[in-house]
Design a protein around this nucleic acid. Sequence first.
DNA 1: CTCCACTGGGTACGTTGTACGCGGTTGCGG
DNA 2: CCGCAACCGCGTACAACGTACCCAGTGGAG
Lengths: 272, 272
Amino acid sequence: MADAEYVNIWMRPERPARGPKPVYSRAQITEAAIRIADAEGLEAATMRRIAAEIGAGAMSLYRYVPSRGNLVELMADRLMGEIDVTSMPSGDWRADLTRYADGLRAMWLRHPWIATVQRSLPSFGPNQLLLIERLMGVLDAFVSIDENLSLIAMLNSYIEGTVREEISSAEEVRRSGLSESEWMARSYPYIDRLVKSGDYPIFTKIVMEARQPHLSRNDQFRYGLQRVLDCIAAALPSTAESPMSAHREGREEQDRPGQARSRPSERTSRAK
Amino acid sequence: MADAEYVNIWMRPERPARGPKPVYSRAQITEAAIRIADAEGLEAATMRRIAAEIGAGAMSLYRYVPSRGNLVELMADRLMGEIDVTSMPSGDWRADLTRYADGLRAMWLRHPWIATVQRSLPSFGPNQLLLIERLMGVLDAFVSIDENLSLIAMLNSYIEGTVREEISSAEEVRRSGLSESEWMARSYPYIDRLVKSGDYPIFTKIVMEARQPHLSRNDQFRYGLQRVLDCIAAALPSTAESPMSAHREGREEQDRPGQARSRPSERTSRAK
DNA sequence: CTCCACTGGGTACGTTGTACGCGGTTGCGG
DNA sequence: CCGCAACCGCGTACAACGTACCCAGTGGAG
């Protein structure tokens, strides 16, 4: 009873007062775990594997983190810190939200395993809190807090839903260990059987009239995003006019999955 | 090499030609697993537990299902069958999509564990395929297949994102084993510290200006959904006018989480 | 100085998914 | 009708997991 009576991981202080200096740290452990999860999936980030990665014994990790579940929370919050919202209530809400959307999507593509934990633990870590502050600050001046929540929820849903779809097929391929073309070749017989059966005309239409050629993944995302932003615009009072940011094309960089464009910003809990 | 060379679970026939008659069935196993997952979470649905539920030995399940992962796929597809889309291209696209949205949300609330697997396996089971046919048939006459995909993706993202939020807190409470009020009492110190710190004004605003009182969860969902449907309407040609279904209030039933409003419609794969 | 709260980490336990093999049962080829 | 290959249910066994417990050292507070 005296031991694990902390509300959550953020209330538990990392460093105690007395005793020998710890060799490792939460940040270091979290970083190692993220590195493994990025490379081989979240299920590969076992306690022993993480410990080996930093050169520690398996059980040593429990000096820093109460359980693996809590470690995953730390990892998730660390990821939130990668989204740059420092400039956020800039005056141009449309630009702000676009920037956030791109940042969130890029982060998810860099760390696809986040899809398996996100929203199963709304633990309000420091990075997530900072994100909330900045992001919801964007529309705070224009709408009530309830409407703000509703609009941001809609935006987040769009981003997450879209990116989940992007991720899922890529993860399926990765998990199988095959190359993308090998994987497609392997699943061809099934698709073919469905099409040939004649029972699924619309599915067949989807398969036949390929959609990828028309738009790149990035453009598809941006296109749908504009629609969502239009929806938000419709819910805002006319005083919130955004200084003509309808279409700005010249942005070909950002969100390349493999790239290491991290910006940690650790920010662990500071107890009073 | 000769053994597991099937593309996916749907290509593998359930019943072989010769040999003694199986005592159990995929459907029975899937049903038992869903029952356990509903009651105690997906992680409680272990192979041994499921086997015990139907009175079988643990290893017997592997005569029907190649692995636990595949069983989860079967479970997920079985759930798709609970969404009633039989009447679907009815002529009133707005009514159809509303009906679908309510059905999908209700299903997720009945089986919250689906959030942890959904979109991590786009396996095109029979029920999912039927759903795709009916659902995408709704807008098929009005827009191109690409636009159709884009609009439906947006709708699905909204539904899933919203329901994920509804589920996450409920799951957190369930996992802790405490009652809702106990759980809130326990997490109060953390929230209080955040508010008192003064660092998070908008978070504080969210905490203080409670949003639940204003709208019920159902109404919140419906309200946001109307916004999404308006977005879709804007993307449709004028020929797609929906016969005045702007606001119809008189629908207080549907989607009560605990209720068993299942409509299985098993439909396993039929090999040629 | 003496304590003792701390450190890293080895050993061990319970639970998981599942490979393998057994003895019995069934339906098809001859 | 017979025989055998293909299937059945299922017991045993194993590797890998999270983690409880214990230990010998360590270093700041008194």
